[in-house]
């Protein structure tokens, strides 16, 4: 029972983690992309469609990553090259993504999807208690953990990571040092898009292998909140994602047990929890001030 709950928590947390870690890199470079929900739903519909057409969930995942990155380029072109307002453009990306995905996926509604096969290592997976948890999950679960570790290492242990953070903290100084601010931001935005696409594919290939246009259900926005919650630190994103996974699985179990609270009110718990958590974090002004990338959301036009 406990093992089962822990496994489902991991399944609920993984898409949030992947999308949030991607967005964390974007925001560390000083760009606020509110289009996570839109990129995620594009990833979900692409992953589902390609896996269905080819029979291979892996090709679906790959296609979702590519589509997520390409879709984010649209945002990049507007905000970085045409210096449009990042908040409005991110919203536009979300609205466009939801619209396009609904259109593209219309013929997928009701079709059985392709489910990604879970890892099975003879001996290890059969271990009591920890076997399934550590050695028997879907492959993307391991990808999400590696991704977190990789991003943490990249940002804080490598020179390129330092450069990226410097662009996010003070783009004028970075530019004066000869760093290509816009180029770095383009790459960060595309990385965020690729991650959001992957997170979307997780939803339509692992979490619930089917398609409906509301399947992201605000997870992209929760991922954005997680980045704030984690005060822009990768391992804290992981902690936050699992916390939210626990809340959403907890409410599902509470619904199944029929504890007398209406299901709709239980379903709104993850969203309310997001608000509460954001309040708790942001009331600590010092903590947020120290960690927020100083150039976050500010447009940059190089002066020549």
């Amino acid at each position: 029972m406990l093992e089962g709950i822990l496994l489902t928590i991991a399944t609920a947390a993984t898409p949030l983690l992947i999308a949030a870690v991607g967005e964390l890199v974007v925001e560390r470079s000083g760009v606020l992309n509110l289009g996570v929900e839109g990129m995620m739903v594009m990833g979900a519909v692409t992953g589902f469609g390609v896996a269905l057409a080819t029979g291979s969930p892996w090709l679906g995942v790959l296609a979702a990553i590519i589509v997520g990155a390409l879709f984010s380029l649209l945002f990049g072109f507007l905000t970085l090259t045409l210096v449009t307002n990042q908040v409005a453009t991110g919203l536009a990306l979300t609205l466009l993504g939801l619209g396009l995905a609904g259109m593209l996926g219309e013929s997928f509604v009701g079709l059985p999807g392709v489910k990604m096969i879970y890892i099975y290592i003879p001996g290890l997976t059969d271990l009591p208690l920890v076997g399934k948890l550590f050695f028997g999950q879907d492959p993307l679960f391991y990808v999400s953990i590696l991704l977190t570790a990789g991003v943490a290492y990249f940002l804080f242990k490598t020179r390129a990571g330092l450069t990226l953070r410097s662009v996010g903290d003070n783009h004028a100084s970075a530019h004066a040092l000869g760093i290509k601010v816009i180029g770095i931001r383009y790459m960060a935005v595309m990385f965020g898009g690729a991650c959001a696409g992957l997170a979307g594919a997780y939803l339509s290939l692992v979490y619930t292998p089917q398609w409906n246009e509301n399947m992201t259900a605000g997870r992209g926005w929760i991922a954005l909140a997680l980045v704030v919650f984690a005060s822009w630190r990768p391992w804290r994103v992981l902690a936050g994602a699992y916390l939210f996974g626990a809340v959403s699985i907890g409410q599902l179990h509470a619904q199944a047990l029929g504890i007398g609270v209406p299901s709709q009110l239980l379903s709104s718990l993850p969203y309310l929890a997001t608000v509460v958590v954001l309040v708790l974090i942001s009331r600590n002004r010092r903590l947020t001030m120290v960690n927020t990338p100083a150039s976050l959301g500010r447009p940059f036009v190089p002066d020549r």
Binding site: W221, P262, Q264, L265, S268, Y271, T274, V275, L278
Partner: peptide, 30 residues
């Protein structure tokens, strides 16, 4: 929440959309 706790209004206002939708759903079914 923005004035008192410095909380990002983009995320809170959006989260409350889902809460309102679910609340309406409950009201008309319940």
């Amino acid at each position: 929440l923005k004035v008192r706790f410095n909380t990002n209004e983009i995320l809170t206002s959006l989260m409350l959309v889902y809460v309102a939708q679910l609340f309406l759903d409950w009201m008309v079914r319940g």
